[in-house]
Design a protein around this nucleic acid. Structure first.
Lengths: 142, 142
DNA sequence: TGCGTAAATGGAAATCATTTCTTTTTAGAA
DNA sequence: TTCTAAAAAGAAATGATTTCCATTTACGCA
């Protein structure tokens, strides 16, 4: 896994620095979306020190390279790692536990048909409660 | 139109102040997405004065009431007015002229089928060039 | 038609996530 | 091992958005 990441970084012409790998590994551990600040906090102490701007810079570069994705959020940057070899998939995010799941449907073909201009990009994000959180809520006393 | 807006505001328990109506009318004139700052600039001079916080506050209230919509944008608030009586439609936005068009397709039913949890909300936005901007680009010399 | 009150507004100041700047350190190719 | 471009630290800047609070205003009701 570590090695796989290093290779991927090489492909993007990004150096495989320990901090960059740590950020990537942290995100890859779980499919859960995370804020830069949170990543920064979790990695403090290791490597001597880690600057918050470094986290921001790395996340942006990794997202630009397609290794991680960004959650649509009105006033925050949130990133998650997902399925490196499956491109162009959309995700279902659990607003409770922040887990990210794949959605096996896009629907863009149909949408494109209904647009008279040129489609350049599209955003699809489904928000909700994952099975586990949904059950927990159902069962829980109010 | 003016009256229609007043009625709608009444329904939302928002007072039909001149400034609020002016913001709404400005957005309703064209289906083009606009920033708070731009609205503020355009309305300066009329009404003596208009505070930027007032614009922000109003846009937020109007969006909460479903009278206007928000563009998905990573670091800016952009709003547009669209089809007051057609709810739950998605839009195609032209990144060149900023015009907003309706998309007659959602695809949420199918998406929902593929999700194991509970869907609470979803975001769909298609970005591109409208017919006019697309043609202009094609024809123009580089 | 005039009052009273909750809502709306202005303007200044605060917030705060994100970015920029500059210097120092480091990965990795030669 | 050396060299160079990329990466990182830390402090400071940015800038869109929000908050605060004193003042004004819309509009329901008498």
């Amino acid at each position: 896994m570590h090695d796989q990441h290093s290779q991927a970084l090489k492909g993007l012409k990004l150096k495989a620095t320990p901090k960059r790998l740590a950020i990537l590994n942290l995100l890859a551990e779980e499919s859960v979306y995370t804020s830069p600040e949170e990543i920064w906090r979790k990695l403090q102490g290791k490597f001597g020190r880690l600057g918050l701007p470094t986290v921001y810079r790395n996340l942006e570069e990794l997202a630009a390279g397609g290794m991680i994705s960004k959650v649509i959020h009105p006033n925050r940057q949130l990133y998650y790692y997902f399925c490196p070899n499956r491109h162009h998939h959309h995700h279902f995010i659990c607003i409770s536990c922040r887990k990210v799941e794949d959605i096996d449907f896009c629907g863009m073909e149909e949408i494109t048909k209904n647009v008279s201009g040129t489609v350049l990009s599209h955003i699809v994000q489904v928000n909700g409660l994952c099975r586990a959180c949904s059950n927990r809520q159902e069962g829980g006393a109010s």
